[in-house]
């Protein structure tokens, strides 16, 4: 007991302490390579550059930025070790709700004839609140009933889609006020995506919320015994994901000047794919909004690349599916390489 009480660290342990290259770097290389393939194919088959065309690049980003907004929320859910299948349906439901409160009075068959020409804040707030509430329900189900996130959000996915169809008995809702329509005008969806992505990059990196999100996905038991209220935190994360899906729904409705029950179908899978391609691990604990943004751009490059090469749209989906599988396989492989689960 009287021996010198000086431990000397862990000599003899192999040098595993070297920091690893961030996963985002590999995704970035992937993005560059895919873009270069299209650039080369462009010169061969179309006789023009794929990348050096500002209009094409803006459309490319515009096409994916709405799903990108969802993906920012989905990324956080996946970092906690969960999944959110409800976001596409929430896009549809919140688009319907927001649009029904954003109609002009001159339209004869408004959903709520008494509630037309409202200031833009009302439809936006209504949509966001519904999205947050739906996300909160997802989170509460997962945290307190301990049902798998897959099932909880699958239930919400079907329910929200059903709600969208019931809301106007399948009729699309159109004729928004100018103020509402301006949300989706021009490059505004891209701007909104950039703001959302930047905000949550900072939040995940520098706040208690971010640190605990990673902690829960990394080792939920550890988070629990460390005094983190895991239930409350999961509810917050899913609510944020629901809120961002609602934001995407609002932007989508405003851009298309119409909302329909089928809006946002399969968006949840695109959003999950963007996150996974961007290096977010489906087993939780790892991922970033920057990675997801790169994943989103890979999606954008593939879609506009196929259009540019005038290839059949059906190939796009098949290639997209293959890329998702490849991304997950790479994730599993990365983890096996680490030697620990």
């Amino acid at each position: 007991m009287a021996e010198a009480a000086t431990a000397t660290g862990t000599a003899g342990a192999p040098d595993k302490s070297r920091r690893q290259r961030p996963a985002e770097f590999n995704v970035f290389i992937g993005l560059i390579l895919i873009a270069l393939v299209f650039e080369v194919l462009g010169w061969i088959f179309q006789g023009q550059s794929f990348l050096f065309n500002f209009q094409r690049l803006s459309i490319m980003v515009l096409q994916v930025s709405i799903v990108g907004i969802i993906a920012v929320g989905v990324t956080q859910v996946i970092i906690t070790g969960g999944i959110d299948l409800s976001s596409g349906s929430l896009v549809g439901a919140t688009a319907m709700i927001a649009m029904s409160l954003a109609q002009v009075s001159t339209h004869e068959r408004a959903v709520f004839p008494a509630l037309t020409d409202l200031p833009v804040i009302i439809p936006v707030a209504a949509g966001l609140i519904c999205g947050l509430a739906a996300g909160l329900v997802n989170g509460a189900l997962i945290a307190y009933t301990k049902i798998p996130p897959f099932i909880a959000t699958l239930g919400m996915m079907v329910t929200a889609r059903g709600f969208s169809k019931w809301y106007t008995k399948g009729q699309p809702i159109s004729f928004p006020t100018e103020g509402f329509a301006s949300i989706g005008a021009g490059m505004n969806p891209v701007l909104i995506f950039i703001i959302v992505a930047a905000l949550f990059t900072l939040i995940l990196r520098f706040t208690v919320y971010g640190r605990r999100t990673y902690a829960i996905g990394s080792n939920e038991q550890a988070a629990r015994v460390s005094g983190i209220n895991v239930e409350h935190h999961l509810m917050l994360v899913y609510a944020i994901a629901g809120g961002l899906a609602a934001l995407a729904g609002i932007v989508l409705a405003a851009r298309g000047l119409t909302a329909q029950a089928g809006a946002g179908v399969m968006y949840e899978l695109d959003a999950i794919a963007m996150a996974v391609i961007g290096g977010t691990s489906l087993s939780g604990g790892r991922g970033s909004i920057i990675g997801t943004t790169l994943g989103m751009l890979i999606f954008g490059v593939i879609i506009s690349g196929f259009t540019f090469l005038r290839l059949d749209a059906y190939y796009q989906e098949m290639i997209k599916g293959a890329i998702i599988v490849i991304a997950v396989v790479l994730d599993v492989y990365r983890q096996r390489m680490r030697g620990r689960s």
């Binding site: 990673y214 902690a215 990394s218 550890a222 983190i228 620990r340």
Partner: peptide
């Protein structure tokens, strides 16, 4: 089972739950 979050660094783990 150690109760450490593998994907966080040492300070984050030391202060987990009391950041």
């Amino acid at each position: 089972n150690l109760a450490l979050a593998d994907d966080l660094d040492v300070p984050s783990n030391l202060f987990l739950g009391r950041e």
